[in-house]
Simulated scan of single mutants.
Amino acid sequence: MFAKPNLLRGLLLAGTVATLTLGAAAVARADDKITIVVGGYEKQIYLPAKLAEGLGYFKDEGLDVELLNDTAGVDAETEMLAGTVQGVVGFYDHCVDLQGKGKFVESVVQFSQAPGEVILVSAKHPEIKSAADFKGADVGVTGLGSSTNFLTLYLAQKAGVKPNEFTTLPVGAGATFIAAMQHDQIQAGMTTEPTIGRMVKSGDASVLIDMRTVKGAEDALGGTYPAASLYMPTAWVDSHKDTVQKLANAFVKTLKFINTHSAAEITDKMPKEFYGDDKDGYVKGLDAGKGMFTADGVMPEDGPKTVLAVLQTFKKELQDKQIDLSKTFTTEFVKNVK
């Protein structure tokens, strides 16, 4: 038998309402699914990303966050600009650099106030005693156009070595960086923990320039140098403020955890593969460098000027344009965290 007209209309209406309800729920779920690419999430400088996940702070905010791993910040930046991810955990200096190219992205949570990086020198090359000795050398960086590349070029130029007088070689981080130095593909290089600790412990390298602390950054770079951050396209931030606030809530809570717990307690919350068979070394490295992290996610007041000054040393496009630093970061969300 056929359904009566009124009954049929009722069934169709109910089906339509159900479809719209399911569609709205799907949109809500999609809006709360955030993909963030991390420029090497095993690096201690980007520790807040995996720590927030491990502590369950994303879920506490009702967010479904997927963290993707990439070995170099410049590649993470490319993915964000292509629209395949919503944000990047990487160095703030990309926000300044991109504005010089007419692209607007901003740090929404500032993780650190120092790079957390060092220049290591191979034990095979004791003749390299300062950045002035980079002339003619191959110096390892995570990637060309990466923050390690920016900083290496600056340190060399500050020491009187021009970019065309040495080579920056993209060798990634971790195992690839270690192999490059062991095989003499690079004579020096910029890297972070836990790679630093492994190479110093093995005797393969020693620290030449140390930027793991605020003082170290000030000595090397001339001021506070905000580095690791969560940065996102400004247009996306402006159109997804509720979601960005939830991310800020989770990350500020994570930064407070870092600042109120020991390196050993933090390490216990990290994936075991991050420290492998050398948990003590991981803890030691974190203990020495965790002072780089901010306590509240707020951009250090004098930091952006230092970053711009460093980049302008060797980037002509930033010398020729008026950069509006106020558009490279926001404190709106971190200051709203309760």
Rank of each mutant, 00 (worst) to 15 (best):
V37S: 11
P115N: 06
L68C: 04
P126D: 13
E265W: 00
E317I: 05
T168P: 09
T331M: 07
G160P: 10
F134S: 09
E77K: 15
D32W: 08
V96F: 01
L153A: 11
S107D: 05
T71A: 12
G56V: 05
N336G: 13
A18Q: 07
T167H: 12
V161E: 06
E53A: 14
T148H: 02
K135T: 11
A72S: 14
V105P: 07
M1G: 15
I258P: 10
L98G: 04
L22H: 10
V27N: 12
K4S: 12
H94S: 11
H94C: 02
A159E: 07
E79K: 15
S107K: 03
S107R: 05
S147G: 07
Y275G: 11
D64Q: 13
F2A: 15
H261N: 14
T142W: 07
E42I: 10
A18E: 06
A76Y: 04
D320W: 05
V141A: 10
G56Y: 03
P48L: 00
H261R: 03
P271F: 01
L120A: 08
D210P: 09
I128P: 10
D287K: 10
L81S: 11
V65N: 05
I323C: 02
D70Y: 04
D210L: 00
G100N: 06
G100A: 04
V207Y: 04
Y57L: 14
M181D: 03
N6F: 08
L47K: 08
I323S: 04
G73F: 01
P226L: 00
A52I: 05
T71S: 13
A263P: 08
D32T: 15
Y282Q: 06
G222R: 03
Q187C: 04
T167Q: 13
M232T: 11
I196P: 07
I258T: 07
T260A: 10
F2E: 14
K4Y: 04
S239T: 15
P226F: 00
V89K: 03
F111A: 02
A250Q: 06
L155P: 11
D268A: 13
I323T: 07
K43A: 11
F314M: 10
L7V: 15
M232D: 06
K321A: 11
K272M: 06
H94K: 07
T313A: 11
D210C: 02
P304G: 01
N249K: 09
A205N: 08
L286G: 09
E79W: 13
G174D: 01
V310I: 08
L230T: 03
K241Y: 07
E301T: 14
D97Q: 10
P126V: 04
D268T: 06
M292R: 12
R9L: 15
Q182P: 09
K321T: 12
I266H: 03
E273G: 08
V141Y: 01
D204Q: 14
D268E: 13
